[in-house]
């Protein structure tokens, strides 16, 4: 109490002094050092450094090929890989394989979300629902999805169903767990506010729990979509006649290392594209979070 009384006599003066001293420190820009603990760097720096890492990577690669450090069948240069990529798209109908892979990822992921989002929301909101599903979900989470491949191959053969179910199993349990945790972290006071304004259970769920956890659900989706790509490649490498992974395995049989590398490149680019897309969705759908992320 005495603190507030003391301050009340000279609030203007106190804040005035604080402002002036802040201006003093910002007017002097100290010499920037390259290694600085946890300090933001200018955009030009981060762009230059980001480009530099790729230039070095391709430089070392090209250098290694030029120096013949490895058999050039096993290690083709970046230019050769890019030209193989062009041939694949132009002459070998690679686009079709890419589209099949994208379709597999998107369909299986959409199915996984259709189950995981409602279930995760209910598990994160109601302890009873959590107590029922949690032991089941946790157990499945520790079973590596690829261990189901032999079983899935026997059930569904080498067709799409086997791929889709592997991708589904691969992400669903983690997706449920992540969403449950995010929903649980919705501040209790937001729910209590709604309830004391007259909200019933359905209204609280619809107008508080869901909108409060949607941004984090989008983040969970972004994280798990990346995992989905991993399982796609595993599924397509083990048994498939179409898709990026299948093309890469065929290339291996003919010792076309440049095509294998082109496949890896395409998967990487696709992964980045989807990540970027979901990032944009996040920014567009949750404008009120601007400046927080």
């Amino acid at each position: 109490m005495t603190g507030t009384i003391g301050q009340s006599t000279t609030p203007d003066k106190i804040s005035g002094v604080a402002k002036r001293s802040m201006a003093d420190t910002s007017s002097k820009t100290p010499r920037r050092r390259f290694f600085e603990f946890k300090k933001d760097i200018p955009t030009s720096w981060s762009i230059t450094l980001g480009v530099a890492v790729w230039v070095s990577f391709f430089g070392v690669w090209e250098f290694a090929v030029w120096q013949q450090w490895a058999n050039d069948i096993l290690l083709p240069g970046p230019v050769k890989v890019l030209s193989a990529l062009y041939t694949m798209f132009a002459d070998n109908g690679f686009l079709n394989d890419v589209l099949i892979s994208v379709w597999r990822v998107l369909l299986s992921f959409a199915l996984a979300c259709a189950v995981a989002i409602p279930l995760g929301i209910l598990m994160g909101t109601f302890r009873t629902v959590e107590a029922f599903f949690s032991p089941f979900v946790s157990a499945w989470r520790y079973l590596p999805a690829p261990s189901f491949i032999p079983l899935l191959l026997m059930w569904f053969g080498a067709g799409d169903m086997q791929k889709l179910s592997l991708l589904f199993i691969g992400v669903i349990w983690f997706l449920i767990t992540l969403i449950t945790d995010y929903v649980k972290s919705v501040p209790a006071d937001l729910i209590r506010t709604s309830v004391t304004l007259g909200g019933n259970r359905l209204q609280v769920l619809r107008t508080v729990v869901v909108p409060a956890s949607l941004p984090n659900i989008t983040i969970a989706m972004r994280q798990m979509l990346a995992v989905s790509w991993t399982y796609l490649v595993i599924a397509e490498i083990t048994a498939a006649d179409a898709g990026i992974g299948a093309v890469m395995m065929r290339a291996k049989r003919f010792l076309h290392v440049d095509e294998i590398m082109a496949g890896i490149l395409v998967i990487g680019v696709l992964g980045l594209m989807f990540d970027f897309l979901l990032r944009q969705v996040y920014r567009f759908a949750f404008p009120y979070l601007e400046g927080r992320h």
């Binding site: 209590r192 004391t196 949750f286």
Partner: peptide
Amino acid sequence: PSRQRGMVFQSYTSFPW
């Protein structure tokens, strides 16, 4: 709880969305 007894909390409870 009911709307007859509306509550303001110490934590900020404005819905951010």
